[in-house]
Nucleic acid binder design. Structure first.
Lengths: 235, 235
DNA sequence: CGCCGCGTTGAACTCTCTCAACGTGTGTGG
DNA sequence: CCACACACGTTGAGAGAGTTCAACGCGGCG
C-alpha cells in the first residue's frame, strides 16, 4: 500500500481521509455521504510545489481544480505583453470551471504561490455532478455570480477611482476579509499593483504617501498595519 | 383574438403564444414541452416603454427578467457619482439572476433603451426550476461563465489598452457581432464612452481621428461604417 | 416650435506612466 | 555557512495621455 504521489498512502485510510477533504469543499456542501464518497473516489489529490504553473494560455485544461491549502494566482497577458492579475485563490476555492462549462483553450495562466494541496477532477466527471446534483450547480452559480460582482466592481474602480482610491479600497477590503487591521499582503506588491491596474512605482508612491499621512504603517515587504481606516475609506 | 399588449388577455390562445415565446428563450432550451408549459404558466409578460427603470440600486428586486424584444442598459453609479455602463442586453438575454441566486439589494440600475417586451419570473419559481431542471442551471452557468470572461477582458483592456485601442476594439467587436461593417451603435456615444471607461470628449476625439485616417465614416449620430478593419485591429 | 441634453471642439492642467538608478532581501550554489 | 546574483522595491525626474472646464452647434423629444 504505498502509492507514489503524496497524499494517498494507505487504502481505506487514505480514502476516508480524502472523503473528509472533499466534504470540506464548499462546492460540495449539502451532498450526502454517498455522493461525497463517489466524488472522492474519482478525485486526484496532489501536492504542488511553489511557483508551479497549473496551466497557461492556449492549454486545453481538462480539470476542475480545488485548492485545499496554499494560494494560486490567476493572471492574463495582454496583447501588449502586460501582465494583469485577475484574482488570487485560497483554501476552498476552485478554478478551471470554464473548461468544464464550455471547453475551449484557456486564455489565462494559473500559478501556485505557495506549496499547495490541489485536487483535480476530470471535467467529464464534474459535468456529470453538475447535471445530477442540483446543489452543486447551484453553489457554482453562487460562486460565479459573486465573482462576476467582484469583477464588475473592479471595472468600475478602474475608471471611477484614482490610484489612491483603489489602493485604499484594496487595503480596507483585505482588513475586512481578515477581520484585522494588521495583515500580510497575500501577494507581492508587484502583483498587487497589477491587480489594481497600476505600475509598481505608483503603488509604492501611494503607500508611501499613506504612511506619511499616518494612515498606515509598513513593516518588511508584506506586513501592513492600518492605523486610520476611516481616513482610508474616504479615499 | 386581439390582445392589448401580448399579455394575458385571452385564455388558451394567449397561453400558446406565451409558450412559443418561452420556448425561444435560450435559458430554457432543451426543456420538454410540458416543462415549457409549466414555466409559461407562471411567467408574467409585459411591454415596457422606452426609458423605464426596471430596478435601481438599493431595490430588492424579486424577479428574473427575460428580454424578448428591445434593449436594456445595466449600469452602476460609483461613489464619486460617475456612471459606469456594465453591459447592454438584447433579445434572449436575462437579468436579475443575482437576486435569484443570492437575494440581496441590487447595487446597479437597469433601464430600457427601447420599448421592450420583458417577461418576469418570480425568484422562488426560478429557484425551483434551477434545482429541478439541470439543463437550466447548466445553461445559466454557461451564460455567467461567458459574461465573466467578457468582464475580465474588460478589466484587462482598461489597463492594457489606451483609449484608441479600446475604441477600435469596440467597433471591431460590434462589426463581428453584426457580421457587417456598417451598423448603428446600440447605445448613445455618451454611454459608449462610459462603457469603455472614457469621457465623451475623449471618445469624440478618437472617433474624429479615426475618420481623419480614413478608417471609419460617421453618419448621423449613430451610424458607423468601418472602412479599414485591419487598421483598426492593429489599434 | 422650443428647449434640454447630446455631441463636438479648444485649451490648460494633472495624474500616471516611463525611463533610470539605486538599495534590499531572498534564494541559490559554491 | 557564506557569498553572490537576480528579482523586487523604492525614489527621482521628465513626458505624455486623458481629464476637466468651458463654449457652442445641433437634434430629437415633448
Amino acid at each position: 500500500m504505498d502509492h507514489h504521489h503524496g497524499c494517498e498512502s494507505g487504502g481505506d485510510g487514505a480514502h476516508a481521509e480524502l472523503e473528509a477533504l472533499v466534504a470540506k469543499v464548499p462546492l460540495f456542501a449539502g451532498l450526502t455521504h454517498e455522493q461525497i464518497s463517489e466524488i472522492a473516489s474519482r478525485v486526484r489529490p496532489r501536492v504542488v510545489p511553489r511557483n508551479q504553473q497549473l496551466y497557461g494560455a492556449g492549454d486545453i485544461n481538462p480539470y476542475l481544480r480545488i485548492i485545499h491549502t496554499g494560494t494560486v494566482k490567476v493572471y492574463r497577458i495582454t496583447e501588449s505583453g502586460h501582465e494583469q492579475v485577475i484574482r488570487v485563490l485560497g483554501s476552498g476555492d476552485f478554478l478551471g470551471e470554464k473548461a468544464v462549462i464550455s471547453p475551449s483553450a484557456s486564455d489565462h495562466f494559473a500559478v501556485t504561490l505557495d506549496e499547495s494541496e490541489i485536487c483535480s477532477l476530470d471535467h467529464e466527471d464534474m459535468r456529470s455532478y453538475l447535471l445530477r446534483y442540483p446543489s452543486v450547480a447551484f453553489t457554482m452559480l453562487e460562486t460565479l455570480s459573486a465573482r462576476l460582482g467582484t469583477t464588475e466592481e473592479q471595472v468600475s474602480a478602474m475608471t471611477g477611482e484614482d490610484a489612491a482610491g483603489r489602493v485604499a479600497a484594496y487595503l480596507v477590503g483585505l482588513a475586512d476579509e481578515y477581520h484585522r487591521s494588521s495583515f500580510l499582503l497575500p501577494i507581492s506588491k508587484k502583483d498587487v499593483a497589477s491587480y489594481l491596474g497600476l505600475t509598481p512605482e505608483t503603488l509604492s508612491r501611494r503607500l508611501a504617501a499613506f504612511e506619511d499621512n499616518g494612515w498606515i504603517h509598513l513593516h518588511g515587504s508584506r506586513r501592513v498595519d492600518l492605523l486610520d481606516i476611516e481616513a482610508l475609506r474616504l479615499v
